[in-house]
Design a protein around this nucleic acid. Structure first.
Length: 203
DNA sequence: ACGGGGATCGGCT
DNA sequence: GCCGATCCCCGTA
C-alpha cells in the first residue's frame, strides 16, 4: 500500500473550466477512507455543469442554501440529494462562478466486499454504476458536503493513470436532464461496461 | 435489450 | 404543492 501513489490532486487541477476538469477526471481514481476500510475505484463517467449559463445546473437561478458550495472555491465536494438518494460533484473553476463536475460512475477496484455490503448485494457491474449507487457504495452523504478534496482525508481524487489500460473518452448529452439536452457535456470511457446510460455515442 | 411506472423526500416556488 | 443531475422492478421482444 504505497501511500504516495494515491496523492490527492491539487487545487490547481480543479481551478479550471468544468469541461476540461470533466475530461481529465476520466480514469482518475476516487479514494474513500472510513472506519470500515478503504474503497477505491476508477472514474469512468462524469458530467460538466456550467453554472449560470447552463439551465440544467442547480446554480442556474443563483445562490440557495443547497447549492452554496458550488459558489465557493474549487476542489470541494458538492453533495446533494435527489429522490431520497445522494450524488456527488467536484466544484471547479473560480470562486463565485458556480460550476461543477458530477461523478456518475466508477469501476470498483478496492474494497468490493465493503461496497457490496453497503449496497444491497448487487451484481458486480451495478456496484457503482450511476451517481447515487456510487455514493451509496462509497458511503458519501450530506455530511461530506463542502469537504476539501485536496487534503487526502476521508475522500479525495488521485491520478493513478500509470497502471490503467488504454482508453478513449467519448462525449454525449447528459443523462436525465430536461433542459439543455443538446449540449454534449457527459464524458465517459468509450465502451466501458461500468458506465450508466449509453456506452457509446454516435453523433 | 429497452421502456414505463412507482417510490420517496428535500428544496424551492 | 410540485418536481427532480435516480433507482429498481416488471412488462414486452
Amino acid at each position: 500500500m504505497t501511500h504516495a501513489c494515491y496523492a490527492p490532486l491539487p487545487r490547481s487541477f480543479y481551478a479550471r473550466d468544468p469541461v476540461a476538469v470533466a475530461r481529465d477526471l476520466i480514469h482518475k481514481q476516487v479514494v474513500r477512507r472510513t472506519r470500515e476500510g478503504i474503497t477505491r475505484g476508477r472514474i469512468v463517467e462524469v458530467e460538466a455543469y456550467l453554472g449560470q449559463s447552463d439551465s440544467a445546473a442547480h446554480s442556474y437561478r443563483g445562490k440557495t442554501p443547497r447549492n452554496l458550495v458550488m459558489f465557493g472555491p474549487p476542489g470541494k465536494l458538492y453533495v446533494y440529494s435527489i429522490h431520497a438518494r445522494y450524488c456527488m460533484n467536484a466544484v471547479t473553476g473560480t470562486e463565485g462562478v458556480p460550476t461543477a463536475v458530477l461523478i456518475r460512475a466508477v469501476e470498483p477496484l478496492q474494497g468490493l466486499q465493503l461496497m457490496r455490503s453497503r449496497r444491497h448485494e448487487p451484481a458486480h457491474l451495478d456496484l457503482a454504476r450511476g451517481p447515487a449507487r456510487l455514493c451509496e457504495a462509497f458511503s458519501v452523504n450530506r455530511k461530506l458536503n463542502g469537504w476539501d478534496l485536496t487534503g487526502g482525508r476521508k475522500i479525495w481524487f488521485c491520478d493513478a493513470t500509470n497502471d490503467g489500460p488504454e482508453f478513449s473518452v467519448a462525449a454525449s448529452p447528459r443523462i436525465g436532464v430536461t433542459s439543455a439536452k443538446d449540449l454534449e457535456l457527459r464524458f465517459f470511457v468509450d465502451g466501458s461496461r461500468f458506465v450508466s446510460g449509453p456506452r457509446r455515442f454516435h453523433s
